[in-house]
Design a binder for these strands. Structure first.
Lengths: 82, 82
DNA sequence: CCTGTTTATACGTAAAATCGTATAAATTAG
DNA sequence: CTAATTTATACGATTTTACGTATAAACAGG
């Protein structure tokens, strides 16, 4: 638990790709479940766009995941954040 | 812990308003911190729009909150309804 | 009440997401 | 190595967000 914190598009993309791989789904499968295009799933995974909240929620739902609001905790050291 | 699950714009709006009240901030204060308009905070709280992910993240950050991805409990794939 | 404060709504404009469709590029399987 | 599959990219069209600005409406004290 202590789900992955999402502070930018890249964080989201990584989480989506990881979850999709774990479920052995193709982008097109996720896309269909979420009623979006395969190209959009690709863009999301690559952090190439800041999607709308409803879109994010639908894609995550397609991967059996939820978005949750949590109080901010001290950030772990993360060399790639900016 | 186990933050509030967000499955639609209304969920987000309620969480934002609650957090803002708890911190005794005005919409305009949150807006300034997040670099958005007061009107947008209002729309967000009222669930009147599906904001972009980066916008949501900025507003939540202004309230010391984070977005987190968590596994869906119980339910298998269950498309978000319209 | 009256008034200052806060929140909701309006409107035109600019920017960005999403679409449909198609194809290039990359990866995997045989 | 080749073919099939999967992922990334392209482009114009459409939809929606977000902006600046202003004002109306709701709210809270005094």
């Amino acid at each position: 638990m202590m789900g992955k914190i999402v502070r930018n598009n890249k964080d989201l993309g990584e989480a989506i790709r990881l979850a999709r791989k774990n479920k052995a789904l193709r982008q097109v499968d996720v896309a269909q479940r979420a009623s979006v295009r395969q190209a959009l799933v690709s863009d999301l995974e690559n952090g190439a766009t800041s999607a709308r909240l409803d879109t994010v929620i639908r894609v995550l739902a397609a991967l059996d995941m939820d978005l949750s609001i949590v109080p901010r905790r001290k950030a772990e050291f993360n060399p790639t954040e900016y």
